[in-house]
Design a protein around this nucleic acid. Sequence first.
DNA 1: CCTACCGATCGGTAGG
DNA 2: CCTACCGATCGGTAGG
Lengths: 195, 195
Amino acid sequence: MVPRKPREERINEITQAAIDVFLEKGYENTTMDTIAKKAGISKGGLYHYFPSKDMVLVSANEKISEKVGEIMESAGCCSSVREGILYYIENYIRYWLEHPKETAFLFLSIAKMLENPELLKYYQQYTSDYVAFFEGAFNLGIQLGEFKPHNVKASAITLMAALDGVLSYMIFDEELVLEEVVKQFEEKFITPIEV
Amino acid sequence: MVPRKPREERINEITQAAIDVFLEKGYENTTMDTIAKKAGISKGGLYHYFPSKDMVLVSANEKISEKVGEIMESAGCCSSVREGILYYIENYIRYWLEHPKETAFLFLSIAKMLENPELLKYYQQYTSDYVAFFEGAFNLGIQLGEFKPHNVKASAITLMAALDGVLSYMIFDEELVLEEVVKQFEEKFITPIEV
DNA sequence: CCTACCGATCGGTAGG
DNA sequence: CCTACCGATCGGTAGG
C-alpha cells in the first residue's frame, strides 16, 4: 500500500490543525478527536503519527517557535552586530506581543515541560538554540572589535531570560511600549559591553 | 449554626492541602475530590469555599509566593540599598531553585492566567507588587545618593522580567551556578546605575 | 512483516 | 458542610 502523503507532510498538517484548536480553546480544553477531525483524519489515525497529546504539544510549540528562527536569520543581515542584536530583540518581543495567544501557549508549554521530565529535553533544545544565537553574536562582536571581551555565555542567558520574562509583563501592561522596552534592553545589555 | 473554624483558617488549610497535591501530581492530574479528602472535607464542602478549581490555583499561587514577600522584608534590613537589592536577587533565585516543583507550578499559573481574562487580574496584582518593590528601592537609592537618577519603572520591570525568565533556565541547566547568575545581575542591573 | 489508517469502544474521571 | 448523583467527556487502545 502506498501512502497518500509523505509522513512529514501529514505531521505538518496535523500540527497546524492542533495549533488552530489549541489557540482557540486552550490546550486542556482540546480533545485529540477535535484535532483529528480538523486534520481530516480519525483519532486512531492521529495516534499513528503522535504517541500522545503531550507530543502534539511539543510539535505545536516547535512550529509556533519557527518564526523566532526566521527573525534570527534576518538579524544576520544587519550592518553591525549591535544592530543585529537590537533587530532581534525588537522583533522577538514584537512577534509575541502581536500574538498573545501564542505567548500564553508558549508559557503553558514551558510549564508542562518543567513538570514533566520526559518533556524537559525538548525545552532544553529550544532554549540552547536561542542562547547559542546570542553567544555567537557576542563572540562575533568581540572578534570584530565592536564589543569588549566578557563572559559571553552568562550575558547570553541573562539576555534571553530577560526577553522571555518581559513578555508576560507586556501582555497586560499597556503602559509598556515596545520602543521603551527595547531602549531598556539596549542600555542594559548592549551599551555596557560596547568598546 | 456556628462554624467550627473561622473561614480564613479553613481556606488556609484547604489551600495547603491543594498545594501538597498540586506539587505531587500536577494541576491537571489533581481532582477537586482529592484536594477535599486531603483537607478533611467533602467535595461539596470544598465548593463552599472555592467557586472553581481555577480559584484554588490562584490561592495556591498566592500562598507559594508568600515566601517572596518575606524575602522583600528581609532585604529592607541590609546596610545599603545596593546590598538590599542584591540580597533580594540572590534569595529570590535561590528560593525557586531549591523548589523546582513550585517553580513549575508558578509557570503553569502564569500560563493559565495569561490565557484566561478572568484570572489575569490576579497575575497583575502579583507582578505590580514586585515591580513596586524594585521601584521603591531604586528611588530610595537615588534619594540617598547611591544611584544615579534614571527611568526607575523601566529598570524595575526589566530586572523583574530577567529574574522570572532566568528561573526556567536554571532549573535544567546545572552549569548555571547561583553565584555566577547573581554576579551577572549585579553587573547588568546595579553597577551601571551606581554613582 | 510493514504502512496507513478506521469504527467502535474501553476504563476511568471531570467539575459542579 | 455532606451524600448522592448528574450529564458529558476524556486520552488512549483493541482487532482487522
